[in-house]
């Protein structure tokens, strides 16, 4: 029973990796490759947040802070400190994890709405630091001149190589998350989601585990921030504002809570929709909001679960 599940998941992941490979080889259009790369970065954000929200049931409305720490972290380390980006990568991830650890200890004692407010406040403080600490971050006008990634003879300047780099990280992250979910820790996280009192009563150290998964999701967000910064070479505080945090939450909810593939679907939809909707010009945001509302009304458990339900119903007929 369990083994069959495992094989199915492995096959799915292998098929997905193959799809990525083919896409990367055969898509020629630079614009499409760039959109797909953005989807990859957003998938990393949604995946990390999904571990926290979908599995452990703890909301964060300040995750753009960790995304920003990843981006500004590598900008500062590579431009100001002249470090190699490959040293900056673990550097920024560890920084984000440390910040998450320090912030998480008091914040994760809150629950429900209060946790939402706490993380919201944290996100805003970090955004103000990006905006106001001009000498280091470039302030409101942004940070220019972030270097291209290079690894020996390979330069990640072109659309194609960067596409492979980002989606390589996505697949690695999928494997990591899948392994966590399918373990003692993953079961304990879902137990916390279903009932914290009962989880403590079976011996789960809920405070410790919530903190661990918060730190983990911060690491994913920082990785996404790093990849974003070295893709666009220019970052500004708006990208990491409150709106960005909300967008991440939306990706998780629309795609499907507690689903790895849901993160991918949610990230794809929220990356592509604004592009498609440009045809509506000034009504863009109205249509965008409307589509999100319709999805939530008809598929309240997210796209993944909703599509599966439709598929299963079709099979029965």
């Amino acid at each position: 029973m369990i083994n069959r599940h495992l094989t199915r998941d492995r096959l799915l992941l292998a098929a997905f990796a193959l799809l990525i490979l083919c896409t990367g080889i055969f898509v020629e259009n630079y614009y499409y490759l760039q959109m797909l790369t953005f989807i990859g970065i957003n998938t990393l954000l949604a995946l990390g947040l999904n571990m926290l929200m979908g599995y452990a049931g703890q909301i964060s409305l300040g995750h753009a802070a960790f995304y920003g720490i990843g981006a500004y972290g590598t900008a500062i380390m590579t431009v100001h400190w002249h470090l190699s980006p490959w040293i900056a990568l673990p550097g920024t991830i560890l920084t984000a994890m440390l910040v998450a650890y320090i912030v998480g200890i008091p914040t994760l004692k809150l629950s429900g709405y209060y946790l939402g407010m706490g993380t919201l406040g944290f996100g805003m403080i970090v955004n103000i630091i990006f905006r106001e600490w001009s000498s280091v971050t470039g302030g409101a006008s942004g940070f220019v001149g972030i270097p291209t990634l290079e690894l020996g003879p390979v330069s990640f300047a072109s659309g194609r190589s960067y596409f492979f780099l980002v989606w390589g990280f996505v697949i690695l992250s999928f494997i990591i998350c899948h392994r966590i979910i399918d373990s003692r820790i993953g079961r304990a996280l879902r137990a916390i989601h279903d009932g914290e009192k009962a989880a403590a009563a079976v011996g789960v150290d809920t405070a410790k585990l919530k903190l661990q998964v918060f730190v983990l999701s911060a690491a994913f967000a920082a990785l996404a921030g790093f990849l974003y910064a070295h893709m666009v070479f220019f970052i500004s505080p708006e990208t990491f504002s409150f709106i960005s945090s909300i967008r991440m939450v939306t990706m998780v909810v629309i795609g499907g809570m507690a689903s790895i593939w849901g993160s991918l679907l949610g990230a794809s939809l929220l990356t592509l929709l604004p592009e498609w909707l440009q045809a509506f010009s000034e009504f863009e945001m109205v249509v965008y909001g409307l589509i999100l509302m319709i999805v939530m009304i008809f598929l309240p458990r997210g796209l993944t679960r909703g599509l599966l339900d439709i598929y299963e119903r079709a099979l029965k007929k």
Binding site: R187, R190, A191, D194, A198, V202, G203, V204
Partner: peptide
Amino acid sequence: VELFETMTVLENILVGQYT
């Protein structure tokens, strides 16, 4: 009764072995 409602019967027992 405080079960882990979204989890299967087996998974409930597996979480029970946490310690």
